[in-house]
Design a protein around this nucleic acid. Structure first.
Length: 701
DNA sequence: CATTTATAAATTTTT
DNA sequence: TTTATAAATG
C-alpha cells in the first residue's frame, strides 16, 4: 500500500530506473531482469508523484502487454485512474491520435484501417487490372507483394535494395512492383482507408505539422516505450517528434532479444538512443530473477556465439541442480508424444498446464502436436497461429460493417457485392463505379483529383438510385439494399453522422446483416456449422461495443486469436497448455518450457539462412525461447522428418541438431536419447503408442 | 460474364 | 492447405 513498500522491493538498478527524474532514460534490460516490473513501477511512481495518468503514454508491442503492465501498476498505487493512461501499440495509439487530428494530415474523418491481408487484396486488384502475371513467369503472390511494400516503407529504403536483400526471387519484377505500389497509395486515398504502415507514417507527419505537431507532443508529460529493440526507423522518428520540447522519455529494451527485423526493426534504435536524445541516462539491468542458474548458463553459452558480443552478462539469482534437458527423438511423432508425456508428468506433480508452454519457430510446427494433444484431451491455447479475422466468413461480415462505416471502401464493396449469385468481379467493378465509391479518379495520372460528381454518398446512391444488376442477382441485390438500408437508418439522410451511433447498436446491425448473409453463407461454404460458431463469437464480441468504428478498428489492430481469445473465453477458469510461436512468446515466462523442432532448417529456419544477419537473428530467437523458462527447459530434436507437407509420402530426410547448440552449449544440457519404444514404458502410454505405430505402419509401407 | 472444375505451385515470424 | 491460372460450360 505505502509507496515505500514496493519501492523497497526493487534492486538498486531497478530503483534507479523507476525513480529517475526528468529527461531521457534508456534501460537496457536483459531477459528476466524485471523489465515489466520496472515499467509498471515507473508508471505507478509517476502517478504517485502527481503526473496525470492521461498525460502518460505507454507504448508496448502488443495490447496485451500494455494491459498487463497497467494492471500491475494499478495494484501498486492507490490511484484508480490508471485506465486513463494512453497504453497500447504504436499502431493503436497512432489510430487514436489520427482520429483527433485527421484534418491536419489530410485524412478525412471516418477513415477505416485495413490489415495486411486487405492490403494484399488491394494490391492484387491492381495487379490484375494492370494485367501483370499473364506472363510466362510467375508473378509474386499477393501476400508477398504486401510484405515487400510494407518492408520498403518501414525500412525507408529503395525498393530495389529491399527486393535484392530480402526478396531476391522477385528481382525480375522490380518495375512492375514499383508501378503497382504507386497506384496502391492512390487507391487507398480514394477509398479513405489507411494501412498499418500509413498509421506510422501519418503519425510521424502529424508530429512535424507546424503548430499541431508540438501540441500533440505536449499532450504527454511522459513517454514510455517497451521492447525498444524491436521498433523501426519510423517509430524512432515518431518518438523524436513527440519529444520536441518535453524530453521525458524512457525506452526499455534488450539488443539480445531483437527478433523483428523482418518488420524492419533495427537495433540502431537502441544503440543510437543516447545520440538522438542528448543527455540520456543509461541503466542496465543484469540480475535475472526468472531462470535457474543452469538454464541461464545454457542460454548465455548459446548467446556467446553471437557475432557481436553483447555487453550484458546475466546473473541468475536462482541456483539449481537440474540442467535443461536435450531430447533426441526418432521423429516428429515421438517428439509430440514426449512433449505430452512431460507435460502430464509436471501436471501430476501439481504444476498447472498454464504454467507450461511449448514454443516453436513457425505456426505450423505445432500441427502434429496439436493432433496428439487433442487425442489425449489435453486442452491448449495457441498464440500466433491463424487469426480469427482471417476466416472468409468473418471477413464477409466485417466487410458489411466497413461499407456502412466508410462507404468509400472499395475493397469491402468488392467483397460484399460478389457474395451475390450472378455477380462476379466484372459486375462488381461496374456497380462500384456507378455508385461512385472512389472519392477521386484513382487511375488519373495527374495529381488533379477530381471529386466524383455528387453530394450523395455511395450508400445513399445504392438505396435511392440503384444500379442495374444482372437478372440472376436481382433478388439478392434487393435484399442487400434492404439490409444495408436498415443498418444505416434508412429514411434519414444517413450521412456519416447518422450512420454512426444514433441508430441500431453494433450488435443489432450485425444481426440484421446476418439475416441477409445466412443463405449466402450456406451456399458458399462447405462446413457451415463449424463456421457458424465463429459468427456467433463475432456477435458476442460486438455486444461490448457502442461504436461501430471502434469495433472494426479493434478487430484490425488487435485481432483476436482464433483458438484462443474467443474459443477459450467461456472456459477461462479452465486450465490449458500454452502453444506459441517464439515471436509471440516475447516478454512471457513459464515454469516449464518445451522448445520443439530444434533442428537446423527449423531453427534457424532454412528460409533465414541467406545472410549472417539473418542467422544472428535466428540465434537471438532461440535465445529468447530458452530464456522464457523459469524452472525447467526441454529442448526436443527429431532426427527424422517426413516430407509430406501437402500429402502423404514416406520420403524422409535426417535432420541435424540446430547449429546454435555446439559442443559447449550441449554440455550445459542433460542429454537423453529416446529409442523408438523407450517412451512406451508408461502404462497409460503403451496402449496409445502401439496403436499409433500400428496405424503408422499402414501408411508408411 | 459468372461459375465450376482441373491443374500446378508454393518461402517463417506480426502490428 | 491455399492460391493462381486455364479450360469448359451455362
Amino acid at each position: 500500500m505505502a509507496a515505500a513498500h514496493w519501492l523497497s522491493q526493487l534492486n538498486p538498478s531497478q530503483y534507479e530506473a523507476v525513480t529517475y527524474g526528468d529527461g531521457p532514460l534508456l534501460v537496457v534490460a536483459g531477459a528476466g531482469t524485471g523489465k515489466t516490473k520496472t515499467l509498471a513501477c515507473r508508471v505507478a511512481h509517476l502517478v504517485e508523484r502527481g503526473v496525470r495518468p492521461d498525460r502518460i503514454l505507454l507504448l508496448t508491442f502488443t495490447r496485451r502487454a500494455a494491459a498487463e503492465m497497467l494492471d500491475r501498476a494499478a495494484k501498486l498505487t492507490t490511484q484508480s485512474t490508471l485506465t486513463k493512461v494512453w497504453g497500447g501499440t504504436f499502431h493503436a495509439v497512432a489510430n487514436r491520435l489520427l482520429r483527433l487530428y485527421a484534418r491536419a494530415v489530410g485524412l478525412t474523418e471516418g477513415f477505416t484501417v485495413i490489415d495486411e491481408e486487405d492490403a494484399a487484396d488491394i494490391l492484387n486488384l491492381i495487379r490484375t487490372e494492370l494485367g501483370f502475371g499473364k506472363k510466362d513467369r510467375r508473378f509474386p503472390r499477393k501476400a508477398t507483394l504486401a510484405k515487400i511494400y510494407s518492408h520498403t516503407v518501414n525500412a525507408e529504403k529503395p525498393l530495389s535494395e529491399v527486393v535484392e536483400r530480402h526478396f531476391p526471387w522477385c528481382r525480375g519484377d522490380l518495375e512492375a512492383l514499383g508501378e503497382i505500389f504507386g497506384r496502391y497509395a492512390r487507391r487507398k486515398r480514394a477509398s479513405n482507408v489507411v494501412d498499418y504502415d500509413d498509421l506510422l507514417l501519418l503519425w510521424r507527419l502529424l508530429c512535424t505539422q507546424p503548430g499541431v505537431g508540438e501540441r500533440v507532443g505536449e499532450r504527454f508529460d511522459h513517454v514510455l516505450v517497451d521492447e525498444y529493440q524491436d521498433t523501426n526507423a519510423i517509430q524512432a522518428q515518431i518518438l523524436v517528434g513527440m519529444r520536441q520540447r518535453c524530453k521525458n522519455i524512457m525506452a526499455v529494451g534488450d539488443d539480445a532479444q531483437s527478433i523483428y527485423s523482418f518488420r524492419a526493426a533495427t537495433i540502431r534504435n537502441i544503440l543510437d538512443f543516447p545520440e538522438r536524445f542528448l543527455g540520456t541516462h543509461v541503466v542496465t539491468l543484469e540480475e535475472n530473477y526468472r531462470s535457474t542458474q543452469p538454464i541461464l548458463a545454457a542460454s548465455n553459452t548459446v548467446m556467446s556465439y553471437a557475432r557481436e558480443r553483447y555487453t550484458k552478462e546475466l546473473r541468475s539469482q536462482r541456483p539449481s541442480e537440474q540442467k535443461p534437458v536435450l531430447l533426441t527423438c526418432v521423429d516428429e511423432a515421438q517428439q509430440s508424444r514426449l512433449v505430452c508425456h512431460h507435460v502430464l508428468e509436471h501436471r501430476e506433480r501439481g504444476l498447472q498446464l498454464m504454467q507450461q508452454a511449448v514454443l516453436f519457430r513457425a505456426g505450423h510446427h505445432s500441427a502434429q502436436l496439436e493432433v496428439e494433444l487433442a487425442s489425449r484431451n489435453i486442452p491448449f491455447r495457441k498464440y500466433g497461429g491463424l487469426r480469427f479475422v482471417e476466416a472468409a466468413h468473418i471477413k464477409d461480415l466485417v466487410a458489411f460493417l466497413r461499407v456502412l462505416e466508410n462507404p468509400h471502401d472499395e475493397l469491402s464493396w468488392f467483397r460484399v457485392l460478389q457474395l451475390l449469385e450472378g455477380i462476379g468481379p466484372a459486375a462488381a467493378r461496374r456497380i462500384i463505379r456507378q455508385l461512385g465509391v472512389h472519392r477521386m479518379q484513382p487511375e488519373g495520372e495527374g495529381e488533379a483529383a477530381d471529386e466524383v460528381a455528387g453530394e450523395a454518398s455511395p450508400l445513399q446512391r445504392l438505396l435511392r438510385d440503384p444500379p442495374k444488376v444482372p437478372p440472376a442477382a436481382a433478388a439478392g441485390f434487393a435484399a442487400l439494399r434492404q439490409a444495408l438500408g436498415d443498418c444505416a437508418g434508412l429514411g434519414r439522410s444517413e450521412d456519416t453522422a447518422a450512420a454512426r451511433g444514433t441508430g441500431m447498436s453494433v450488435a443489432a446491425q450485425l444481426e440484421r446483416i446476418r439475416q441477409f448473409y445466412q443463405p449466402v453463407f450456406e451456399r458458399l461454404y462447405e462446413n457451415a456449422p463449424a463456421r457458424l460458431r465463429d459468427i456467433e463469437q463475432l456477435q458476442a464480441m460486438a455486444v461490448r461495443y457502442r461504436s461501430r468504428q471502434r469495433f472494426i478498428t479493434d478487430l484490425t489492430l488487435d485481432p483476436p486469436n482464433s483458438t484462443a481469445d474467443l474459443a477459450a473465453a467461456p472456459y477461462l477458469d479452465e486450465d490449458y497448455l500454452i502453444l506459441s510461436t517464439i515471436h509471440s512468446a516475447k516478454g512471457m515466462e513459464w515454469n516449464v518450457v518445451h522448445i520443439i523442432h530444434a533442428a537446423d532448417g527449423m531453427i534457424p529456419s532454412d528460409m533465414a539462412t541467406g545472410s549472417d544477419e539473418q542467422i544472428e537473428e535466428e540465434r537471438r530467437l532461440f535465445y529468447v525461447a530458452m530464456t522464457r523458462a523459469k524452472d525447467m527447459l526441454y529442448v526436443y530434436f527429431p532426427l527424422r522428418y517426413y516430407h509430406h507437407r501437402f500429402g502423404l509420402s514416406d520420403a524422409h530426410t535426417y535432420a541435424q541438431l540446430t547449429r546454435f547448440l555446439p559442443a559447449d552449449a550441449r554440455a550445459c544440457f542433460e542429454p537423453r536419447f529416446e529409442k523408438s519404444d523407450a517412451d512406451a514404458d508408461q502404462g497409460e502410454l503403451t496402449a496409445r503408442v502401439s496403436v499409433d505405430e500400428f496405424l503408422d505402419q499402414l501408411w508408411k509401407r
